[in-house]
Structure formats: C-alpha cells, structure tokens
Simulated assay, not measured.
Amino acid sequence: MTLRVLSPVAGTVVPLSEVPDPVFAQAMVGPGLAVDPDRTAGDAVAPVDGTVVTLHPHAFVVATEGGAAVLVHLGIDTVQLKGEGFTLHVVKGEAVRAGQRVVSWDPAAVEAGGKSPVCPVVALDAQAEALVEVRESGPVAAGEPLFTWQR
C-alpha cells in the first residue's frame, strides 16, 4: 500500500531533525517531516483520508483504513496552552478526507506566547526507509504532498 501524506499547513518544509524537541528530532515516535507554518491564522487539515483516532486542540492523529496513522502536532510544547487559541472542527472518531479542515489556529500567536509553531508530521510506527518521495525543503501549501509512505 502506498499512502501520500499531505501537508496539514502552509509554510516551509524543514527536516524533523531541526524540530526543537528531542522526541520529534530523534524520530522517537516515527519518521516524517515538519512544516514551519506561515504566520497567519488559518486551518490545519487532515494529511490523509481516515478516522480521527486522537484529538487534542494542539495535535491529532488520523488513521487510514489500512491501519497507517499520521500524527500532526501544531507547534512544540503547545499542550501547555491548554487549548487556548485552537478551534476544533471535528470530533474523535469522525471520518475525514485528506485536506479537510481539522483545527483552526494562529501560529503567530503561538510564537508570541514563546512557543515554536513548527508542525511535525509523523508516520507513526513506520521505518524511515518506508518514506519515499520526501519533499526536501522549500515552500509548501496546505494539502500538497509531503512524502509517500510505502507500507
């Protein structure tokens, strides 16, 4: 099975190793990429078709029918914001389509609050070599491919 994983936000692609959090930077939860988001308020969208299996204001996981799960984390240490500045548009257990709005947020407000707004996008429980067609760097729009996950 081949799964195209889309960017949940518009911004600039950065390697996961540059995320200012060792859990993500060392790929402890899985391989992937990060997106340094544009500093405009907007929406984070689902990276794949599937079911929302985990949902917090600052993070969500979408699992596909085939069992692949993709984590999107909106900023680093944003759990400390206790949901402030985040608006959920789906509920846990809801089926979503790739590109569908999941959370609205304001990366500039996150940054102004002293947190990094960078967004890790992680293929949970994957091997690094399973990710191909990985976007190396540069600008990306929400809904554009970040990488392909071969399962």
Rank of each mutant, 00 (worst) to 15 (best):
T87K: 11
A41S: 04
G66R: 14
S17P: 13
K92A: 14
T12Y: 08
A25M: 00
R135G: 15
G66K: 13
S137K: 07
P57W: 04
R4E: 11
V90D: 05
D125N: 14
Q26L: 05
P8E: 08
M28T: 12
S7A: 07
G85W: 00
V91W: 13
A142M: 05
D106I: 01
Q80C: 08
M28R: 01
P15W: 03
T78R: 07
L71N: 00
F86A: 08
A46R: 04
A126W: 04
D38Q: 09
Q80G: 09
V23P: 08
V48N: 09
V45P: 02
L6T: 02
G75S: 01
Q127N: 13
L146V: 01
R97A: 15
T12V: 13
R4K: 10
H58Q: 02
G32P: 10
S137P: 15
K92F: 06
F86N: 00
L33Y: 04
R101L: 15
V53K: 10
A98W: 04
S137T: 15
V102H: 04
V121I: 05
D106M: 01
L81P: 11
L81T: 01
G32C: 05
G83N: 06
P107M: 01
D21A: 00
L131T: 09
V13E: 09
V134D: 13
F24A: 05
S104M: 10
A130N: 10
E65W: 14
G143I: 00
G75F: 11
F147T: 00
P139M: 05
F147D: 08
E133M: 15
H73C: 03
V23T: 14
V62M: 05
T78A: 08
A141I: 06
H58L: 07
P145L: 02
A63Q: 11
T12A: 12
L74I: 03
S7Q: 02
V90A: 07
V70N: 05
D49E: 09
S7L: 02
Q80F: 13
Q150T: 11
V52Y: 06
C119L: 02
V96Y: 10
G66V: 08
R101S: 15
R4T: 14
P57S: 04
E18I: 04
